[in-house]
């Protein structure tokens, strides 16, 4: 088992080194003729009129919060799925199936609530 994870670590190191290597190579090889004006952030050629960290629509925050809830749901369901197979073969899978329905419908209810309150609506 140790050897298997050694291979994963080596792969992670190779991938990271390659990624950094390409970025560094580009920075070293690329030519440099930058007049002052070119370094102004892109706003269609005009002097920047907006602040970089201005306000942003609350929708993005809502999506982030909802994502957390449902991603944790997926994480919680993984051990459930592991247990379900074992107990289904022992004959008491029905209990776990009811647990799944209760858990998923609670979260489905949360989704319906968010939907009804308009958290999933975007202006066109």
């Amino acid at each position: 088992m140790g050897q298997e994870f050694l291979a994963v670590i080596i792969l992670l190191i190779i991938a990271a080194l390659t990624a950094v290597g390409i970025v560094a190579a580009s920075a070293l090889i690329g030519r440099r003729v930058s007049p002052e004006e070119r370094n102004i952030p892109y706003e269609c050629g005009l002097d920047p009129a907006s602040r970089p960290f201005g306000r942003f629509p609350i929708k993005f925050f809502l999506v982030g919060v909802l994502f957390l809830i449902f991603d944790v749901e997926v994480v919680f369901l993984i051990p459930w799925a592991a247990a379900f197979r074992g107990s289904a073969s022992l004959g008491n899978g029905a209990v776990l199936a009811v647990e799944l329905v209760v858990f998923v419908s609670l979260l489905a209810l949360a989704l319906v609530f968010a939907w009804a309150r308009g958290a999933l609506e975007w202006e066109r």
């Binding site: 907006s50 970089p52 201005g54 994502f67």
Partner: peptide, 22 residues
């Protein structure tokens, strides 16, 4: 990137990314 355009672009991209991850 210090511009509001790329900032909003990143917000849109990340929102889409995490939504479909579910």
């Amino acid at each position: 990137s210090q511009t509001s355009y790329s900032f909003l672009g990143a917000m849109r991209a990340a929102s889409q990314f995490i939504s479909y991850e579910l």
